[in-house]
Write a protein that binds this DNA or RNA. Structure first.
Length: 867
DNA sequence: ATAGGGTTAG
């Protein structure tokens, strides 16, 4: 169809009127007087080919008495653009004089059909024949590269463009920007875009907005869009979908609404891409009503928009509505596509409806969608999340081609089910398979690292992510923050937090929990106050962190008021975790009676964690009677958990009730419960050195024991009194003291001081999980005394020292060493981490000591498996 | 007569 563009206006008014459309052009063909003119015939040929009437075009072409270059080129282009490449090639061979345009027309056709070998062969042949490729050639080839994500080929074209001085041509650069963006090289795309000196046109701007958006860089996409408007470049139906996707990705709902306004003013609202992007944006920004409104106003049933609607409903937790949307699609007899099934599978997965999920799997097979990667990815995800790792792996193994999403689905599935080690191994497998990670899998892996406290691994993933040039996302930053906090690197966690431009409740909570776990309860509370002041509402998890912080900072009054505010101010009903924290808090501050009262007041049934807190509180206050009650409950709730048996047994032994100790031990024996022997290990030069209590099997045992013997008197001098009250064995005092001195952790530390070079961090791992910190709080651990002593020595030499210590040191110091309290007031930080793992850093001899408690000795934590 | 940008899944 002729468009009234400038080129046509150049023709005589009469002709222009005559050939305005194909109908009149065809009519003209039948009038012999007109046909004589070659010029006019070419116009007709062009009109036919443009309207896709190839057969008629060929007829005219064959009938033409005289064919010039224009006629031949038009016919080749007509075949090439309609995908009839065999015919195009055949005709191409017959073209008497092949110009650049002839070559470009054929190359363009090959590129559109994704025929990479043919396209590049023609590209070389063209040069061989003495025709110079131009911006048209490169534009087509770059399009092909971006279509098939062929980075190397694209880079070759880039090199060629530089060599032939086409590297500032707006068409070529737009192609390059798009190609690099599609190949995930957003930095290269950005560089080329910024290096473009001339005024950039709207296509280039749109390509850049799309590039940012497709690379998961929503904020930059929005920024770029704003710059585009500031520059006065007009947006069109290509620009809006990209920026709307960006809004959806970063949940910038208010900006999305503004973009909607722009769209309405610009008149591009009718475009189906724009509309479906609008539906998606509203659905993802949890404005289902607006999404519905756009969807209902659509003239055609667009499956993309409907799919988006299902996803939006599921994300909002409205699974029923999502299914209703799916049913409506059926009623309207819409053709489902490979995006519909993932959405519906996701819906059933979040409803935990395995039966229906399986029937969708059947439907997928029935309708012939089982070969679609997208659909299989969703199946892997669904089965993995349901805990059916076997089914997930089965689908996974049957897939001929796997992408990041496939691997992510399986990895996330394993991580959700607590198989963190398996998740990390899969991640390594993915890297071996040559798949590059993206921000979704990175976030997932960092969370797994946090759970395993494999700091080295996490840091490597972080470094790799920085190197990849991918922009961070909120979820990556959140999991990074958590990972560092959980691994005891609270400064790094803080750094991540400070660098974040956007934060949500998860971010704030992660930092609150992080500070709390690292023994900086007061900082937790400060962060909480900042969060409230900033207008972010706390959630269930925030309060766990906050109450935990209060209990460990000894702020029982604040804790109680926060606990009250939970339901009263924010409408969050306290759960078992909150009660456990509160009982811990009351127990620590010597309010055992109140703890007992709270326990009795509870509406919900106390769980094991609550009883553990209570038992720990009883132990600290030496209340054997209540301890027995707590322990009995624990024996019922967790009969195979050794910890309560040990705690109670320790209390009996402290009270010199050796008969009861024996009774507990008999009970343990009869139930087949044994305490896992404690061991500590550390790594130097890729070798793991493991130590058990009083272990002399190490090659350097003599030196290690000598080092400890050197340390013990120094610690005693600093005020250390071995706390032997909880020793298990009914041995003499000296024996108990010795068993403490050669505790596995201290052996590891002594070894580390002998071998690790000054300035390098020392990391000690332990296998035993601290079920409750309170139980370990006071006294006992010589290791901490040792650190405190060294810190003390260090203080003498240096004015300022950043010291982080195990939090229970703080309690100890308060009770036993008054001058330490003074030190603390002077700003020396003494804190640590509690829970499953804890670290202590200190500036000991210029070294940083980190002490980590792992959940069992994992092969990943053991460096032999890492290397 | 030949070239460049867009929506849905983890």
């Amino acid at each position: 169809m002729f468009k009234s563009n400038s080129r046509i206006l150049k023709f005589p008014r009469k002709l222009n009127f005559r050939y305005r459309n194909v109908q009149s052009a065809c009519f003209v063909r039948k009038v012999p007087n007109f046909v004589q003119e070659k010029f006019n015939l070419n116009r007709v040929l062009n009109a036919l080919s443009k309207s896709g009437r190839i057969y008629e075009a060929r007829q005219l072409f064959d009938e033409m008495p005289e064919r010039d270059e224009f006629s031949w080129n038009t016919m080749v282009a007509a075949y090439a653009n309609s995908g009839r490449l065999a015919e195009a090639r055949k005709l191409f061979g017959q073209v008497p004089v092949k110009s650049s345009i002839t070559w470009n027309s054929l190359i363009s056709g090959c590129c559109q059909c994704g025929l990479k070998i043919e396209a590049f062969e023609l590209f070389w042949e063209m040069q061989f024949q003495g025709r110079k490729p131009n911006q048209y050639t490169m534009g087509s080839l770059l399009r092909l590269c971006s279509l098939l994500t062929m980075l190397r080929r694209g880079q070759q074209i880039h090199g060629y463009a530089v060599k032939t001085q086409f590297d500032l041509n707006v068409y070529v650069v737009t192609g390059l920007v798009d190609m690099y963006a599609k190949c995930m090289c957003i930095l290269e795309a950005e560089y080329l875009f910024n290096m473009m000196p001339e005024r950039k046109n709207h296509v280039m701007w749109s390509a850049m907005v799309a590039g940012y958006s497709q690379n998961g860089n929503g904020y930059k996409a929005i920024e770029c869009f704003q710059d585009m408007r500031t520059e006065g470049v007009e947006c069109n139906q290509f620009t809006f979908p990209s920026v709307l996707t960006a809004c959806a990705a970063v949940a910038a709902d208010s900006f999305g609404v503004q973009v909607h306004g722009c769209i309405v003013r610009s008149g591009f609202e009718a475009n189906v891409y724009v509309k479906s992007a609008l539906v998606d944006m509203y659905a993802k920004c949890s404005d289902l009503n607006s999404a519905w409104m756009v969807l209902e106003n659509m003239e055609v049933d667009d499956v993309v928009s409907w799919n988006s609607m299902i996803v939006g409903c599921v994300r909002q937790g409205c699974e029923e509505e999502a299914l209703a949307v799916f049913q409506k699609m059926h009623q309207r007899d819409m053709k489902l596509d490979e995006f519909t099934y993932p959405s519906v599978l996701n819906c059933f997965a979040s409803m935990k409806d395995m039966r229906n999920a399986r029937s969708i799997h059947c439907l997928i097979i029935k309708t012939g969608f089982e070969d679609y990667k997208l659909v299989n990815n969703a199946l892997v995800d669904m089965y993995a999340k349901q805990g059916s790792s076997d089914c997930a792996t089965q689908v996974f193994n049957h897939m001929p081609e796997k992408d990041v999403v496939t691997w992510t689905s399986l990895v996330t599935g394993y991580a959700c089910n607590g198989s963190y080690e398996e998740a990390l191994k899969l991640f390594c497998g993915m890297r071996t398979a040559g798949i590059y990670p993206d921000h979704v899998i990175v976030a997932s892996i960092l969370s797994a690292c946090a759970e395993l406290t494999v700091w080295e691994f996490g840091q490597q993933v972080h470094a790799n992510f920085i190197k990849s040039g991918l922009q961070s996302s909120l979820s990556v930053d959140n999991s990074l923050l958590s990972m560092y906090a959980k691994c005891g690197c609270i400064e790094h966690a803080r750094q991540v937090f400070d660098s974040m431009q956007v934060r949500n409740v998860i971010t704030w909570t992660a930092l609150i929990v992080g500070y709390a776990q690292n023994g900086k309860g007061r900082d937790s509370i400060q962060i909480y106050d900042e969060m409230i002041a900033g207008g972010t509402k706390p959630d269930y998890v925030t309060f766990i962190g906050l109450l935990f912080a209060c209990s460990h900072a000894g702020l029982s009054e604040s804790g109680c008021s926060y606990f009250e505010s939970m339901d009263k101010v924010y409408g969050i009903k306290p759960g078992p975790e909150h009660y456990a924290c509160m009982i811990d808090l009351l127990g620590r501050s010597g309010r055992l009676a109140e703890a007992e009262k709270l326990l009795n007041q509870m509406v919900l049934q106390p769980d094991a964690a609550i009883w553990k807190s209570f038992l720990a509180a009883c132990r600290v206050h030496g209340n054997l009677e209540l301890a027995v009650r707590a322990a009995k409950n624990l024996f019922e709730l967790e009969p195979m958990n050794a910890v309560p048996y040990i705690l109670l047994s320790n209390m009996y032994s402290a009270a010199n009730k050796w008969e009861d100790v024996a009774k507990i031990r008999r009970l343990m024996k009869s139930r087949g419960i044994s305490k896992e022997p404690g061991c500590s290990w550390m790594e130097t030069n890729s070798t793991v050195h493991t130590f058990m209590s009083e272990d002399r099997s190490h090659l350097k045992a003599a030196e290690i024991y000598a080092k400890i013997d050197e340390i013990i008197p120094l610690i005693k001098e600093a005020g250390y009194v071995p706390d032997i009250s909880f020793a298990l064995h009914d041995t003499d005092e000296k024996g108990k003291e010795l068993s403490l001195a050669y505790h596995s952790e201290k052996l590891a530390l002594a070894f580390a001081l002998l071998t690790v070079p000054p300035g390098a961090p020392i990391r000690i791992f332990k296998n035993l999980r601290k079920e409750n910190v309170h139980a370990e709080t006071i006294g006992r651990n010589v290791f901490n005394y040792y650190i405190s002593y060294l810190v003390f020595l260090r203080r003498m030499k240096q004015r300022w020292l950043p010291i982080k210590l195990l939090h229970f040191l703080f309690f100890f110091l308060q009770q036993h060493l008054k001058h330490w309290e003074a030190e603390r007031r002077k700003g020396v930080h003494i804190y640590g981490l509690v829970g499953r793992e804890y670290f202590a850093y200190c500036g000991v001899e210029g070294q940083c000591v980190q002490n980590s408690n792992c959940k069992g000795r994992t092969s990943l934590a053991a460096p032999s498996a890492i290397r």
